[in-house]
């Protein structure tokens, strides 16, 4: 019993979950129940996959001990590449495939510069943030290309299910979350990710192929960011040169609020999703309660600080709970 209490105190997902419940209750009360109406939940869950999928990749990379600040730019560049190819007469499938490969390529460049040239990933990916954003603007040719009407939207953004409650993108989020979560918590590769981020020297000395593990995480993170960018572009029916602007900080915020450690080694896929959901809930709740939307960033910032402070406090409290040996 005491051991269970101790473990739940030290579960880094707890502050995020508690905040989520508190905010849902507050917003429901202050919006006279509109917040929990089917129509509103449908809206929240419709947008969640975009930030959720990005946050999963960012969180796993953070657990591996590295950052990707270029996900927002990848989120814009990948769908832009796809649309530009399609405007040159390519079909959806090949354009989508090439765009995804470019996403992976961005991740591999991040990995190469960081791991082989020994540059902190914070710097590498900050550089890539600017470079990929600039490329997005350049290849857009200054005006947003049209997305043809015959793309398979049913596969990405169309509503389905009873009352058309969910978007197809939600299924993608669920599939990716389950696979990523199993990989991280149950596979040997997940063990290597946590070891690489938790104590890189020990991981290497014990035979974990640290370079390869981190490279795969960089590539996967960029791939997911590009995929999420495609989903958003199909939902909005256009790509702009600003698509994904600021997404990198929201994704890092989501991970941190959900309990992923900034120094690596600690966190879960579920953390990233809780964090992403919190951000969507705040965004939506502020609108519904007619709060000045300019408070959005203030609220996200406050959540970050609160979540990290609460987590470190709970860790210490948990440590002080003595469990009989």
């Amino acid at each position: 019993m005491k051991a269970l209490f101790k473990r739940s105190l030290q579960n880094t997902e707890i502050p995020g979950l508690v905040l989520l419940v508190v905010l849902v209750v507050l917003f429901s009360v202050f919006s006279n129940g509109i917040f929990v109406s089917t129509e509103n939940l449908r809206g929240i869950l419709g947008l969640l996959p975009e930030i959720g999928i990005v946050a999963i990749g960012v969180a796993i990379l953070m657990i591996a001990g590295e950052f990707d600040l270029s996900v927002g730019s990848t989120f814009g560049l990948v769908p832009m590449v796809m649309v530009v190819f399609m405007s040159h007469g390519w079909g959806f499938a090949p354009a989508f495939g090439v765009a995804m490969l470019i996403g992976i390529g961005i991740g591999l460049v991040n990995a190469f510069v960081t791991l082989r040239l020994g540059i902190p990933s914070f710097i590498t990916t900050l550089g890539m943030l600017f470079m990929m954003r600039s490329l997005t603007v350049v290849i857009s040719g200054g005006f947003p290309p049209q997305i043809p009407s015959d793309v398979p939207r049913w596969l990405f953004t169309d509503y389905f299910g009873p009352g058309n409650f969910l978007r197809a993108s939600f299924v993608w989020l669920v599939i990716i979350a389950i696979c990523a979560s199993l990989m991280l918590s149950r596979s040997n590769f997940g063990n290597w990710i946590k070891a690489s981020g938790g104590q890189v020297a020990a991981a290497a000395a014990l035979g974990v192929p640290v370079m390869r593990v981190k490279t795969i995480c960089f590539a996967g993170c960029a791939l997911l960011a590009g995929f999420a960018g495609v989903i958003q572009s199909l939902r909005l029916n256009s790509v702009m040169s600003s698509t994904g602007d600021g997404m990198e900080l929201q994704a890092v915020a989501a991970s941190v609020i959900g309990g992923v450690s900034l120094v690596g080694g600690i966190g879960t896929v579920f953390s990233a999703i809780i964090g992403a959901l919190l951000i969507r809930v705040i965004d939506n709740g502020l609108v519904l309660t007619r709060t000045d939307p300019n408070w959005f960033k203030f609220a996200v910032g406050a959540l970050i600080v609160f979540a990290v402070v609460a987590n470190s406090w709970l860790q210490r409290l948990g440590k002080s709970v003595r469990v009989a040996g």
Partner: peptide, 19 residues
């Protein structure tokens, strides 16, 4: 090694079987 023989953020069982 003095410092890097274990990964502090992981469980004992997982530490024993890394890689």
């Amino acid at each position: 090694y003095q410092y890097n023989s274990v990964v502090p953020s992981m469980s004992i069982a997982r530490n024993l079987f890394i890689s």
